[in-house]
Nucleic acid binder design. Structure first.
Lengths: 239, 239
DNA sequence: CGTGTACTTGATACAAGTCAAGAATAGTGG
DNA sequence: CCACTATTCTTGACTTGTATCAAGTACACG
C-alpha cells in the first residue's frame, strides 16, 4: 500500500529490504478522507506525519480577506507533512482536493526510524529538500514567467510526478482539479485560468476533457514553460 | 566566527558544547566574496556547503529572456546550500548581494557530522525545512497579497531574521539592497518597488535612508502584511 | 570633479482581475 | 430514469494593478 512512496524513493537511490520493511512498520492503517476535508488544519500542532496512498491534496494558506493560495499540490506517495517531524506547528493547512486514502506515522516512530536508519533518514530529508525546490520553481513561475508559461510549467511538473508513481504515461494523465483550484495554485483568477487553457487547446498543445489531459506537443509545452526537470531529482544517485 | 549560526540554532533548541565544537570543526577558513559575484552558479554540482559569516546573498534563477527571480534572501548565519548535501546538483544560483565573508564545509565532513550527531543533524534538517516554510510564505505573498503587503511582509521577515543574529534591534536595521534587487525578490518592477516604498514613507510607517530602515509603526506594517512569524520557528523547543 | 549607479517621477500600455450571465456537467432524490 | 440542483466551465464587457518607456535628480566613488 505504501508502494508509491517506495517507488519514488527507489527512483532516487537504492532502497534495501530492511529499509522498506522499517518504513512499512511505522505506517498506520489506511484511512479514507473525503474531497474538501482538511487533512491537517492551519496553525495546529501535530504529532504524526501523513502519507498519501491515493488522491490529490494541497498545501494552502488562507488570508484575512478569504483568498486562498495553494503552495504545493501533493499526490500518491507524497509524505505531506514530514516537515512537522521537526517543526511541529503547521504554518499552512493541507486539504484533500479529491477523495483520498492516507496513512499516518507517529512522530515517535518516525524519530526512531530516522535514528536507526541513517540512509533512509537522508532519503526522507531529501524529500523535504525537494519540496523546497518545488516551491522555488513555483516562485520563479509566479514572479517572472507569463501566466501561460506558469500553467505550462505546472502541467509539466504534474505529469512527471505522476509518471513516477505510475499514474501518467504516453503524455496522458488525469488531473481531477477544478479551474478554481488551479487558480489558487497559480495565483490567478478562475476566469484567467480558463482562458489560458483555451489558448493551449487552440494552439493544439493539449486536450483537456474532464480530468483527462493529453499533451499533444510535449516539446512545445516544455518550451513555453522553459521546463527543466532537474529540481525533481528523478535520477538514481547514492545519497 | 560561526557564532551567528550557533545563535540561530540555539534559538530553536539547546546546543551543547560538543555539538558546537563539531560544527566548528567542519568549517574551513573564512573567505571573502565581492558583491555581485556568484557564490554558487546555477546548474553546477557541488561537493561542499557554504555558511554566510557576514553579508547578504540571494538564491536566484535566470530565465531565457534574462529576467531574474530571487527565491530567498540569505544573511549572516545562514547555511545557504546545505540542501546540496542531499541534492548535489544546484537547481538555482547563489549570488553575493553585498561583500560577504563565507566558510565552506565539505560534504564528506558534513556527512560524518550528521552521522555522528543525530540531534545536530535534526537541527540542520530543521533549517532546510524552515527554508521551505519561507518559500511558502513568499508564494502566498506573491500569489494572493497586494504588492504593498508583499513588500511589508518582506520587511517584517528581514527584521526578525536579522534580529536573531544581532543585526537588528528597536525596529531599526540595515538592508543594503537596491530597489532593483528587491524587485527581483518581490517579482515586481523596480519602478513599482520605488512607488511602494514611497507609499510606506508617506503613511509614516517607515523611514528608509540609504540602507537604514526604521520601522516607525511596526503594528501597522505587520497588519498590512498580515505577518505571522510562526514559520520562522524562533522559539526554543526540543527537536 | 566627473561618471556611473541608484532613485524618483510622469505618461502610457497591457496583462490580469472583476462582474455578470449563460451553457455544460455532474450529482441527487423521487 | 428523469427532473432538479449545484457546480464547473465558458464567454463578453469593463476595470485596475503593475509594467514599460522615458527623462531627470541625487548620490557614491574613483
Amino acid at each position: 500500500m505504501y508502494n508509491a512512496l517506495v517507488e519514488k524513493l527507489a527512483r532516487r537511490d537504492v532502497l534495501d529490504a530492511v529499509e522498506e520493511a522499517a518504513l512499512a512498520r511505522v505506517l498506520g492503517p489506511a484511512v479514507r478522507v473525503l474531497a474538501g476535508r482538511d487533512i491537517v488544519s492551519e496553525h495546529v500542532r501535530v504529532e504524526q506525519s501523513t502519507l498519501i496512498l491515493s488522491g490529490f491534496t494541497a498545501r494552502y494558506t488562507t488570508l484575512a480577506n478569504g483568498r486562498r493560495q495553494i503552495t504545493e499540490i501533493n499526490l500518491t506517495g507524497d509524505f505531506i507533512d514530514l516537515h512537522s517531524l521537526l517543526m511541529k506547528q503547521m504554518d499552512h493547512g493541507i486539504v484533500a482536493l479529491t477523495d483520498c486514502t492516507i496513512a499516518h506515522a507517529s512522530h515517535a516512530d518516525l524519530r526512531k526510524l530516522v535514528d536507526d536508519h541513517g540512509h533512509l533518514a537522508r532519503l526522507l530529508w531529501l524529500d523535504t529538500v525537494i519540496d523546497a525546490a518545488i516551491h522555488r520553481q513555483w516562485l520563479v513561475a509566479m514572479g517572472r514567467r507569463s501566466a501561460l508559461a506558469h500553467l505550462c510549467h505546472l502541467i509539466c511538473e504534474m505529469y512527471l510526478r505522476l509518471e513516477v508513481v505510475g499514474q501518467a504515461a504516453d503524455h496522458v494523465f488525469d488531473l481531477p482539479l477544478s479551474q478554481a483550484v488551479l487558480g489558487d495554485a497559480l495565483g490567478l483568477s478562475t476566469v484567467h485560468v480558463n482562458r489560458l487553457i483555451g489558448e493551449l487547446r487552440g494552439e493544439g498543445v493539449i486536450t483537456w476533457v474532464g480530468a483527462r489531459i493529453t499533451v499533444l506537443r510535449w516539446d512545445r509545452l516544455a518550451e513555453i514553460a522553459e521546463f527543466d526537470p532537474t529540481y525533481l531529482r528523478l535520477h538514481r544517485e547514492p545519497t
